[in-house]
Amino acid sequence: MKVYSIGLFKVVPGNKPVLLNIVYELSSFGFFQRGSVKEVSLFVSRETVGRTNVGERVSMEHTQTQKVCHTTVDSKGLGCSVLTDSEYPGRVAHTLIRICLEEFYKVHPESEWRGLQSDVELQTPALDQLLLKYQNPETADPMMNLQKNLDETITIVKKTVEQLGQRGEKLDDLAAKSDDLSFQSKAFMNNAERMNKCCGYV
């Protein structure tokens, strides 16, 4: 069970989400493949958070690569995405998301990022620590208990890649058009499933 990345975005409906900060934990990938993995992670995170409604909690599974992207967008338009493997418990992932949003607000009030139109790196040291801590969801378990009652009243919307699409869009088609992905990363993503079986790229 792994958390690969935590990303924070400014989300305005109808617009492309703006990256505010993203941190990665990619030590399980080959040293020379991490560049492509980073780009794919950013692409998946941005696309998924951009299709999440305010107040909604989404766990989108990409069956081809056995990865799940968990996202939430709050009422002020701050979105958070957490990319994990498919075994990682969704409830813990969404707990992590909520904590990340809180930590981000502590350092960067809304006035600081509301007007941004292009990607930035708003340093948030707490994210790095949370990324390490939540690699082991059992360690994070005590946090869940404190919020148990609240969790029970909120359902997590689980969506597939197909449901997320608009007008028949496919994620792989989106990949071909994305600016986040370089030439090689697009090929990497398209073949992640096949490469996975042979060489352990992913």
Partner: peptide, 18 residues
């Protein structure tokens, strides 16, 4: 041969994208 089967798929995508 198995390795090259995987690599062919990757390279074909590179070619298609380019």
């Amino acid at each position: 041969l198995d390795f090259f089967k995987k690599t062919k798929a990757f390279n074909e995508s590179l070619t298609a994208i380019a």
